[in-house]
Structure formats: structure tokens, C-alpha cells
Design a protein around this nucleic acid. Structure first.
Lengths: 195, 195
DNA sequence: TATTGACTTTACACTGTGTAAATTGACACC
DNA sequence: GGTGTCAATTTACACAGTGTAAAGTCAATA
């Protein structure tokens, strides 16, 4: 399944993943990752040009391991627009907690790092595609809320499903993942579909 | 109105404010701020213990200058719960763009800095009070959506009005402030009140 | 046996924050 | 007029973390 299987490279990616997951919020240093991977700090630079690229590679590795594409394919298979919306909300909403720690690191980095910003924009752009497709399906079925243009509806769904929204509800407000999923399921229908 | 009026201190605060506003996203360095304030870098440390505290002081200075308290007082004066909700959404939603650049800087810092995190939590806690008060008023009037507990409703409003949500809609999606305000006005009612 | 490749070790340049201390200049009090 | 004080300046340095550079080790392989 994995495109490259350089063993040390993978060890480093796993170490980074692991470190970010277990110390959420504490941005791992190159030396921390090296130690965790059982390799010298300099070795990291043999596999990744810099810290940013290492973390970008880590998110890609996660996507590959989790099989995002297959996951999102499910929602694409739905017949009706409503089913498609539900499936997408469930799939993506359930994916966020798996990738949160690493994603968050990249989100913070993107504020000061051009490359991180680009990688992040790409990733979120892909996610937006899924939102847009669900909205198109709703419109096709004639159930899209009348006061929203497709673009507005897509933007709203994109925002409701954004990682900061998930973070706010589960981390700041203390909602369980189950509670988050249930509310977002309802919310997206309430806001986006015609009553 | 201002508690302290040390002229150099104010010059520094204005320089920081100015710098963050005009270079949004580019975290200003101590030397940049010093230069802008027309003062030596070391002088900053005569007025603020460190970079974090300088930025915290800057947000406080903004709040003071803009008179947040007066602004929020308006919403407190509303008679009905619905009026109160509207007033609060309008007031806070209109305030975000004024403070965004500085607030964003602090939001990024809070991920790696304990003090920044504390200051930010405080600020957002205050904002949550406003959300909670509006929800209580809705409940008192018997118009709170039945499927939501007051806590859930408060959390949702708090999330909808959060700075990341504003940022996502206006910066990523390109919504105008007017469009943001209009949609949030409708959205909050739709989600939080009984139809 | 020589070569290659992956990794280590050591060292260093660079950036930015924060500490420290000696110096200057103005104003204020007696 | 002399003295003290206060704000700010200048210079210097410690420290952390990223990234570069180069020489050395060691095993596999041809």
C-alpha cells in the first residue's frame, strides 16, 4: 500500500506521529523525534529537508495508513443528496480525532511557514471538494435550503466540519466524540436543507 | 479612561498593535516593535517582562480603547431573549475584525506558551459569559430550541461566534463582514431557538 | 579488495529571546 | 551648583533550536 518503504524513514515518521499524539500541543523538536526514532538528529535531515517537510510527510503518512480515500469513497457512493451529506459528515467527523494532533501542529506552523501553509491549504481544499459534492447532490435533489447559494452552503458546511470547530467543541467545551457527531449530523441537515 | 498612561509604554503598545495589524500573520519580533516604537529593543523589557506579556498587554489595551464593556452592555439591556441574542451576535461579530490580528497572534502563541494560554482562556471565558446570558434569556422566554440543553446551546453559540469560525468564513471563504454578520444572525436563531 | 550507501559524530553558523551591567542625559530637589 | 534618581541607551553575552558541513564508521555488495 505504501508508496515508499524506506524503513528508517518510516521509523522517523512513526516517531513523529507518536510524539505528537502523546504530547498534544507540545511541538516536538527535531532532537526529540530523533531520540524517539532511535536515530541521530542529523539522520532526520537525510530523509527530510527540514522540520516542516517532516511534519507534512507525517500527515501524508497518516492519510495513507488510514486510507482516507477509501473512507471518503463511501460517501461518494450514496444515492440521495441527504445520504451523501450524512455519510460525508460521519466519515470526516470521525476522521478528525485520528489526525488531530498532527494536523494541529501543521495548523500552527502554517501561520509562520509558507510550505506548511501550502500543504495545509491543499489538504483543506481536498476536504472542501467533499463538501461541495454533497451540496451539489442536495441541490440536484432540490432539497438545498433556499436561502443559500451552493457556494454559501459549501462554505458553511466546510466551516462546520473544520478542525477548529471540532477542537472547540470537544476540547474547549468537553463534548464527547459521540456528542459531537450527533449534533453535527443534525446541525448540517438543519442548516443546509430545506425544511 | 486608561489606567496607566506611561507615554513610552503606550508608544510600544501602539507599535505592537500597528505592526500586527499591518503585517497580519507575520509574528512581530521584539526588535521590529522596538524600531517601530522608536526605542531600543532593551527598553521593551523595562516595560514588559517578555514578548508574551507585551502581546497580552496589547490585547488589553485594545479592549480598553474600543470599550468592549460598553459595547457588550448594550446587549445586556435587551428586553427579550431574542433581542439579547441578536444584540450579542451583532456586537461581538462586529468586534472580531477590529481585534483579529492581535488576537490571532495570541491564539498562535497560546499553543506553546502557558501564559498566553491562560490570558486567552480568560478572554474567551468572558466572551462565553455573554453567550450563556443570551441562552438563559432565551430559556426564560421559553424559546430555546427543545433539543438543546442550555449548556449545549451555549457551547454551540460560543463556537459559532468563535474567532476561528469568523476567520474561516471571512479569510478562507472570502465572505464580507456584512455577509458574515447576516448569516450568523440567521444561523444563531435557526439553531438555537424553537421554530 | 574497493566502492557505495546509510548513519554517526562533531562542530559551527544563524536567529531570536532574555539577562546583565555600565553609561548618558534630563529633571528635580535642596 | 551639586546630588540623586529615573528612563533609556549601548554593548555584551547566555541559551535554545534549526539547519549546514565534513569527516569517520560499518556493513553489504560487486
Amino acid at each position: 500500500m505504501s508508496i515508499e518503504k524506506n524503513p528508517t524513514r518510516i521509523r522517523i515518521l512513526k516517531a513523529a506521529w507518536n510524539l505528537l499524539d502523546s504530547n498534544p500541543g507540545v511541538a516536538a523538536r527535531m532532537s526529540d523525534i530523533a531520540k524517539k526514532a532511535g536515530v541521530s538528529r542529523q539522520a532526520l535531515y537525510l530523509h527530510f529537508p527540514n522540520r516542516t517537510e517532516l511534519f507534512i510527510a507525517t500527515t501524508r503518512y497518516q492519510d495513507e495508513q488510514f486510507g482516507v480515500d477509501d473512507m471518503l469513497a463511501e460517501s461518494r457512493a450514496a444515492e440521495t443528496g441527504l445520504d451523501r451529506l450524512d455519510a460525508f459528515v460521519r466519515a470526516w467527523g470521525g476522521y478528525i480525532p485520528k489526525i488531530f494532533a498532527v494536523a494541529k501542529t501543521l495548523m500552527v506552523m502554517k501561520e509562520t511557514d509558507e510550505d506548511a501553509a501550502k500543504a495545509w491549504a491543499q489538504r483543506m481544499g481536498d476536504m472542501r471538494e467533499g463538501c461541495a459534492a454533497a451540496i451539489v447532490a442536495l441541490e440536484r435533489d432540490g432539497v438545498l435550503a433556499k436561502r443559500l447559494t451552493p457556494k454559501e452552503a459549501t462554505d458553511l458546511l466546510w466551516t462546520l466540519l473544520s478542525i477548529p470547530t471540532w477542537e472547540h467543541l470537544t476540547q474547549e467545551c468537553g463534548w464527547s466524540q459521540e456528542s459531537y457527531a450527533r449534533h453535527l449530523h443534525h446541525l448540517s441537515k438543519q442548516v443546509l436543507t430545506a425544511s
